[in-house]
Write a protein that binds this DNA or RNA. Structure first.
Length: 502
RNA sequence: GGCCCGUUCGUCUAGGGGUUAGGACAGGAGAUUUUCAUUCUUCAAACACGGGUUCGAUUCCCGUACGGGCUACCA
């Protein structure tokens, strides 16, 4: 078996992927790229009852959006191990279950749902295991003939693993070190369900083995079942090629307790999903980072730092830098509360790093639909003036004055500039402005001050009046910048309009 | 309840037997900006607790507390 690094991201299509899942995918991706390995997307759709339409496509689009594309897998082309959807591999699992059956590591169980309920009712803390399976209806308690008969009658059955009653299972976790669990704490998990589908445990182990997965990097919620998986590798005789395990700390709710869940997003007012998702059944809309105006690079960077750090003080990392710096050793052990403020900071940092043209390209759609078609150069210049004011791309909507003049000025700003009424002459100002058309920012500012002094207006009042005229508010970019952007004609129009309302 | 994993500023974290316990976000103060935003400076803020081991423990060990996960024919 080759020692090539091969990792997989294996989500279950039961709904959209929340950012915790994206982070798991990211760590897998980074680990693969860092080690020159393969990153695989496998769809674990073994629970036919919980399938959600569109979930699989959602995974694919998410991975594309954040830029961590698998080199094999559903939606990304077949490698040597297709198919990559477990429902398409259904037939293969039965033979593995039977292999275990023949080796006496598994058995048929015919217990119905009500049988099990009864056992649970009569035995507190009941679990199906070495001590209790003699009370069940299974191929260990039933006669050979009866088992054959039930099988021939197409009775419903599951195949369960047969665990020893008292045996320490030890394994090494790349993040947590050595972990030991005794089989007395475990139960005879179902391997093959009565609908013929494998459970996660069987499918996962078989596929990881077949697909030559070298490292299983997954959430901590899987840690308790890792011993079961180790036993499966052992019983299959695959222990020497068993992948290494790395169980990631969980993403926790920003407030209160528990792991981050789908509901938290709407409850706390920020997205929990990378992309907007509309539930096909309920039509419930879950907001997405993309639609909220996040840059995928910022989301990636922010996610990478939730549970991992480079060991240096650098925090802004491109994808390439993340690959270079990533290692399993620097993954934290404790769960991380999701920090929305930090996410915002990352995003604004990434927006500031954009060139005016890049930023313009990212907001052109919003601007056009909201404020009408813009000239490309103008848009880039306009956007450059407010770049450091944007936390989200969508915040550009807050600066409509860059694209449209205000018709009616609000009371409050107007009241602050009333004192200019007597000394200011619109026509004089218009004449003055004509001469400034080709001036640079500094000379516009100097001339403006001169104009104010010559007309017996305080410089501060003058500037305040112009600001309100141009943007309709008391804060904004510097006056020379605005005049430079708007040009003298638009500037004078806005000034006239505002002055007339004083 | 049982089992497993964890615990450094409010949050994300660095560090690790002897440190002024470092950084970032958020918060406070100030400077620059005629405004606001940016930027810069600066302040406040943490080793859960109790026992060991040790000359010395936040760092190692054991308990306790607290947090999280798992305990399905869900993943």
């Amino acid at each position: 078996m080759s020692s090539k690094v091969r990792v997989r991201f294996a989500p279950s299509p039961t709904g959209p992927l929340h950012i915790g899942g994206v982070r798991t995918a990211l760590y897998n991706y980074l680990f693969a790229k860092k080690n020159g390995g393969d990153f695989i997307l496998r769809i674990e759709d073994t629970d036919q009852n919980r399938l959600v339409q569109g979930a699989e496509q959602y995974f694919i689009e998410t991975l594309k959006w954040v830029g961590i594309e698998p080199n094999e897998g559903v939606g990304f082309g077949d490698g040597n191990f297709a198919p990559y959807r477990q429902s398409d591999r259904k037939d293969s699992y039965r033979q593995y279950a039977e292999q275990l059956l023949n080796a006496d590591f598994a058995y048929y169980a015919f217990d119905t749902e009500s049988d099990l309920e009864q056992l649970k009712a009569t035995h507190p803390n009941f679990k199906y295991d070495a001590n209790t399976r003699e009370q069940g209806k299974n191929s260990l308690t039933l006669s050979k003939d009866e088992v054959a008969q039930r099988l021939a009658n197409n009775e419903h059955y599951v195949i369960r693993i047969k665990l020893p009653s008292d045996e320490d299972v030890k394994f090494h976790d790349e993040i947590r070190g050595h972990v030991t669990v005794n089989t007395s704490q475990m139960d005879d998990k179902v391997l093959l369900k009565s609908d013929g589908m494998p459970t996660y445990h069987l499918a996962n182990v078989c596929d990881d083995y077949i697909m030559q997965i070298s490292h299983v990097i997954r959430g901590e919620e899987w840690l308790p079942s890792a011993p079961l998986h180790v036993l499966l590798y052992r019983y299959f005789g695959w222990e020497k090629s068993m992948p290494k395990f790395a169980h990631l700390p969980l993403l926790l709710k920003p407030d209160g307790n528990g792991k981050l869940s789908k509901r938290d997003g709407d409850r706390l007012g920020f997205p929990i999903f990378p992309l907007e998702f509309i539930d096909p059944k309920t039509n419930e809309v879950s907001s997405g980072y993309k639609q909220s105006g996040y840059l995928p690079e910022a989301v990636l960077n922010m996610l990478a730092f939730l549970g991992w750090n480079p060991g240096t003080e650098q925090e802004i990392f491109s994808k390439e830098e993340l690959i270079e710096a990533f290692s399993l050793e620097h993954i934290h052990k404790a769960g991380a509360k999701f920090d929305f403020e930090k996410a915002k900071w990352f995003n604004s940092e990434y927006i500031k790093k954009l060139s005016n043209e890049e930023l313009a390209g990212l907001v052109i759609e919003t601007v056009t639909t909201k404020f009408g078609k813009q000239d490309d150069t103008y848009l880039a210049n306009a956007v450059g003036l407010v770049k450091e004011r944007l936390v989200f791309l969508n915040d550009i909507e807050l600066f409509g004055y860059l694209f449209q003049a205000t018709d009616n000025y609000a009371e409050t700003p107007l009241s602050k500039i009333n004192n200019i009424k007597e000394s200011f002459n619109v026509n004089n100002f218009s004449d003055f402005l004509q001469q400034q058309t080709n001036s640079d920012l500094i000379s516009i500012e100097t001339s403006l001050k001169e104009f104010a002094t010559n007309n017996n207006i305080k410089v501060g009042d003058m500037m305040k009046f112009l600001r309100v005229s141009l943007v309709g508010e008391l804060s904004g970019p510097t006056i020379p910048e605005l005049i430079h952007l708007f040009g003298s004609e638009e500037t004078i129009n806005r000034v006239r309009n505002c002055f007339s309302q004083l």
